[in-house]
Write a protein that binds this DNA or RNA. Structure first.
Length: 463
RNA sequence: GACCCUUUCAUCUAGUGGCCAAGGAUGCUACGUUUUCAUCGUAGUCACAGAGGUUCAAAUCCUCUAGGGGUCGCCA
């Protein structure tokens, strides 16, 4: 039987980073087994902006290169189907109508809490055959086993045992007739042919409830894998306060999708000591048995490191294309290769990379004060003037960094000075700061005319 | 409060009774390379939550304690 996994978000408007990880695990496992990865929208409560939410999810999937099989399933469009199963259970006596009011329910819960018990429905209408109270639309409850254990083997956590009396006769249909989450999830997972359900471990307690449904309907159980949560650096639940939780924010911050995937796949999963995984490797190596039991903390340092790694290893043409989104269009630049080779090791994100590029491409509008103090002193002005003269009278072609290097060498030889004497002021003249790529490279990128212009401007600024 | 899950360096993790005086990666600190910065290289830093057992031998098995997380809805 081929593997079928799914991602089943409720429509919240954007794809959460933790959601992406469980989706990734499911997707990898499906692809690993040449199976199917399905998408379902859990919108039973109301058809709240489901289309919009789906769009956001697909957008994020597209960005990271994930895809799903078949049609998207909307639970809100399957109410008739669920209704049939509710009727079936009612007929078979496996479910029943409960006429308890919300007020009564609240009172019951309160009393149980006061006694130090876990709040649950007491089953008072389970075997009710009297006259139902007037004026109350009943809910439908399923008959959960009253004794024994509900046991299942979780692929991540191992055997899970929950006493049956911890699971009450929960509601499968509201008083308005609409079905509830745990009921429809079990039905859909079964009907959609799920073999492996990989989800967050906040669903761990839902699993016994869903098993009750599976059993009542005679469905075969899939394998369950409950993946521990991603916490923030303080070990608390990840929230918007902790920075980006929306996957698409990572795109805006200049992260590469392969870096984000690589980061997420290593959060709660490992393959020996390996850190770098291409998507192909993830697919071939992923196995849910290697998923970690414990929660992990989100720490951005490693993501940054991975991003730097992937930027360094991305072809320049592709980088140039991506940089368009960051206000840098160098696709047509005739020194594209040189420019990116010089800068890609200096930017950990596309945002930083674009800044690096702008620094070279645009003449400095101001000079860093500290740099000026350090570089524009002594005979710096004179040396720069001499350098201009040399560039202007240089007879060999000036194209490659090595060509410019030859000029510099000639200068330091003639003047009997160290490289730093010309290097520092030249660097400040070119980009206004004391950091950045080699001056040879920068001059080759901007060309001799622009180089001379920038130096002249610097010379003029030195009093 | 009840129930469930969980606990190896600051962080992500390797580890399934002897190969572990615990390995890798990130971070951090040095040093080297570089005319600068970055990259890169080398080295250093740092952990088995605690207490009892079982065993010739425990990070690994058992018990308890403590910490963290989750769940207790006519939400999903």
């Amino acid at each position: 039987m081929s593997t079928v996994t799914r991602f089943a978000p409720s429509p919240t408007g954007y794809l959460h980073i933790g959601g992406l990880r469980t989706a990734l695990f499911s997707w990898l496992w499906a692809r690993h087994n040449d199976g199917k990865f399905l998408l379902r929208i859990e919108d039973t409560d109301r058809a709240r902006n489901s289309e919009e939410a789906l769009e956001a999810i697909i957008k994020a999937f597209d960005w990271v290169g994930m895809n799903y099989d078949g049609d998207v399933v909307y639970q809100s469009k399957r109410f008739d189907l669920y209704k049939q199963y509710i009727d079936q259970l009612l007929e078979e006596g496996k479910a029943y109508k409960c006429y308890m009011s919300k007020e009564e329910l609240d009172a019951l819960r309160e009393a149980q809490m006061a006694r130090g018990e876990r709040p649950r429905y007491d089953g008072r209408y389970r075997d009710f055959d009297g006259t139902p109270p007037e004026g109350i639309d009943p809910v439908i409850r399923i008959k959960a086993p009253k004794e024994g254990m509900i046991t299942f083997v979780d692929g991540v956590k191992g055997e899970i045992n929950i006493a049956a009396d911890e699971v009450d006769d929960f509601i499968i249909a509201r008083s308005d007739g609409t079905p509830t989450y745990n009921f429809v999830v079990a039905i859909d997972d079964a009907l959609m042919g799920l073999t492996d359900v990989i989800r967050g471990d906040d669903h761990l307690y839902n699993t016994p409830k869903q098993i009750v449904v599976y059993n009542a309907l005679g469905f075969k159980l899939p394998k369950f894998y409950h993946v521990a949560m991603i916490n923030n650096e303080q070990g608390k639940k990840l929230s918007k306060r902790d920075g980006a939780t929306d996957v698409m924010e990572y795109k805006a911050m200049g992260y590469l999708p392969e870096a984000l995937l690589n980061f997420l796949v290593r959060l709660g999963w490992s393959h020996g000591d390996q850190e770098i995984f291409s998507v192909e490797e993830m697919i071939s190596l992923f196995d849910p048995k290697d998923i970690n039991k414990s929660a992990s903390s989100y720490s951005p340092d490693k993501l940054l490191w991975l991003n730097a790694h992937y930027i360094k290893n991305t072809p320049n043409a592709k980088l140039a294309e991506m940089l368009k989104d960051f206000g840098v269009d160098i696709v047509e630049h005739d020194r594209l290769e040189m420019l990116l080779d010089a800068t890609k090791e200096r930017g950990k994100t596309l945002v930083e990379l674009s800044q690096q590029i702008n620094l070279i491409l645009n003449a400095p509008s101001e000079y860093d004060a500290k740099a000026v103090k350090k570089a524009f002193k002594g005979d710096a002005k004179e040396i720069l003037v001499d350098f201009i003269a040399m560039l202007q009278t240089w007879e060999k072609p000036l194209h490659l960094p090595s060509d410019y290097h030859a000029v510099l060498e000639a200068l330091v030889a003639e003047k009997e000075i160290g490289f730093g004497k010309i290097g520092m002021p030249l660097r400040v003249a070119l980009v206004g700061a004391l950091t950045g790529p080699g001056v040879d490279e920068m001059m080759a990128i901007i060309g001799v005319d622009e180089t001379i212009e920038r130096i002249e401007r610097a010379v003029a600024s030195i009093s």
